[in-house]
C-alpha cells in the first residue's frame, strides 16, 4: 500500500489561516490502514482545528467527509454538490488523492494533510516499512524476492557494499536501524539453495521506466473503452 504520515497540525494551521469554511477530506484506502488519513484521523484533525480556531476567537466551520477513495472519479464525484461551499479542502489522502482532487475541482483550494512516504507494508501496528520503489521493471525473480532497489540505501544491483555489518546497513542507527538489503538477499538465496545465482551479474538497468523517464502511464488497450 501507499504509506503516509500525518503532517504536523501546526503546518496545516498555517495553510488555513484566514479560511472560513474548511472540509477535511479523508480516504478509506491506504491512508486508513496506515492511520494517517482515514475517518478517525479526519475526526481528530477536525476537532483539533475547531478548538484551535475557537481559541483564537475565530468562527471557522470545519466539516468532515471520508470518501471510499480519492484516486477514482466516481468517489470524488460524491462531493461535487458541496465542494463549492468550502474555501479550503484539506485532503488526508496520499499525494495521488490530493492531486486528483485538485484536477477535478479547479477552483477549490486543496491542501495536503499528510506526507506521502513510500510503498510499503505494515510490519506491526505503528511500524511501516518500505518495500517497493515502483521502478517499472521488476527484478525480484533474480534476487530471491527481496528488492535491492528499495531495500539498499544505494539501490545497488550487485551489492552489498562495504557498509554492511552483522546484517545491518550503516546508514541508519538506533531505532531507525535498517537491515542490509543484500544481506537479506544472500540469506534468502542461501535458504533456497540458490546462492550460486549471486554470482550472476545484474546488467546496467534501464531506468527509463523509473521516475527518470518522466511521469509514467500504464496503457491497456485491451481494457480501454
Amino acid at each position: 500500500m501507499i504509506v503516509a504520515d500525518k503532517k504536523p497540525i501546526e503546518e496545516i494551521i498555517e495553510y488555513l489561516k484566514g479560511k472560513q469554511n474548511i472540509l477535511i477530506l479523508g480516504c478509506n484506502e491506504c491512508v486508513t490502514v496506515c492511520e494517517a488519513g482515514g475517518k478517525k484521523e479526519v475526526g481528530v484533525l477536525a476537532s483539533a482545528l475547531r478548538m484551535y480556531f475557537q481559541n483564537q476567537g475565530e468562527d471557522v466551520k470545519i466539516d468532515e467527509v471520508t470518501l471510499e477513495r480519492q484516486c477514482d472519479h466516481e468517489y470524488l464525484e460524491e462531493i461535487r454538490d458541496r465542494v463549492d461551499q468550502y474555501d479550503a479542502v484539506v485532503s488526508l489522502a496520499c499525494g495521488v488523492g490530493v492531486q486528483f482532487m485538485a484536477e477535478k475541482y479547479h477552483s477549490t483550494h486543496i491542501y495536503p494533510g499528510v506526507n506521502t512516504c513510500f510503498l510499503g507494508a505494515t510490519e506491526e501496528r505503528g511500524l511501516w516499512t518500505e518495500r517497493c520503489q515502483a521502478c517499472g521493471q521488476c527484478i525480484l525473480a533474480t534476487t530471491g524476492g527481496i528488492c535491492p532497489v528499495s531495500r539498499c540505501a544505494k539501490r545497488l544491483l550487485n551489492g552489498p557494499c562495504g557498509g554492511s555489518t552483522t546484517g545491518k546497513c550503516e546508514v541508519k542507527k538506533g531505532d531507525e536501524e535498517i537491515d542490509c538489503g543484500w544481506q537479506l538477499i544472500v540469506d534468502r538465496l542461501q535458504a533456497l539453495d540458490r546462492l550460486d545465482e549471486y554470482e550472476t551479474l545484474c546488467p546496467v538497468k534501464d531506468w527509463s521506466t523509473d521516475r527518470a523517464g518522466g511521469p509514467r502511464k500504464v496503457i491497456r488497450e485491451d481494457l480501454k473503452q
Binding site: 545497488l156 550487485n158 557494499c161 551479474l201 546488467p203 546496467v204 531506468w207
Partner: peptide
Amino acid sequence: VHDIDSMQ
C-alpha cells in the same frame, strides 16, 4: 545517483 553500481 547510483544509476549504475561499482560492478557495472
